[in-house]
């Protein structure tokens, strides 16, 4: 935990809020996502957090709609049933296709699934695989660029949330998050809080505090907070 805190602190010193068109650096560095070069200057492309670390410049976006990437875990909703498979909405301008052999049971319109992105073509349509149906629970969505904060370094943040609330949580890179059981209300509120404060530091501890406070408040009120 302490190592992560130090790492975060180090990162935070070199992370700052930028808008499109702002110059990040004029030094020769490697280019990560979110930047472009003009006249020898590295310039931010998106509204986000600029990072200059280990000889690389990049901007991590704070906003934006999800574009599928190979290997991503996504939570999707079946929107069309066809013979070869299913069209799945993944909260993106781009659709995903799930071949029938990639899911154990037949699916219907409106079913919620979690799957992995196998392949993305040049116009960003994707094929997803290893799909599993999710029953019950609640589906929320946050801005997909904030998802890494919800997961945390080495999944520390999400593990914390799951352990403290006892909820099952599946986080899609596409910003869709499925929550079931435990203190699901509190898990949901904690995730929204992370989304709002994604650009701040000290978040891991703050969220743990927040969840603990909410749970003790709920218990002292004798609230029916815990779902089974």
């Amino acid at each position: 935990m302490t190592d992560e805190k130090d790492a975060n602190a180090q990162q935070d010193v070199q992370r700052w809020l930028v808008t499109p068109g702002e110059v990040i650096t004029e030094e020769r560095v490697k280019l990560g996502p979110g930047v472009y070069v003009q006249d020898g200057k590295v310039i931010a492309k998106v509204l986000g957090l600029a990072e200059l670390r280990n000889g690389m410049a990049r901007v991590v976006p704070l906003e934006g709609n999800y574009v599928p990437k190979q290997g991503d875990t996504v939570v999707g909703i079946v929107v069309d049933v066809k013979i070869p498979g299913y069209d799945v909405d993944i909260n993106s301008p781009y659709k995903a296709f799930l071949p029938r052999d990639q899911v154990r049971e037949p699916l219907e319109y409106g079913d919620v699934i979690v799957a992995t992105v196998r392949f993305v073509d040049e116009v960003k349509n994707s094929v997803i695989e290893n799909a599993r149906k999710l029953e019950g629970g609640e589906l929320i969505y946050i801005a997909s660029p904030r998802v890494p904060r919800v997961i945390g370094k080495n999944a520390s943040m999400i593990t914390n949330i799951k352990n403290l609330t006892g909820s099952r949580v599946i986080v899609g890179a596409n910003g869709r998050i499925w929550i079931k059981g435990g203190y699901s209300d509190i898990a949901r509120d904690a995730i929204y809080k992370i989304e709002r404060e994604a650009h701040t530091h000290g978040l891991t501890d703050r969220i743990a505090e927040y969840i603990k406070d909410r749970i003790s408040e709920s218990e002292s009120n004798g609230e029916e907070g815990k779902e089974n």
Partner: peptide
């Protein structure tokens, strides 16, 4: 546009 996360050269 920036608020929506759309990538641009400048505002």
């Amino acid at each position: 546009l920036a608020d929506a996360g759309i990538p641009m050269k400048d505002l």
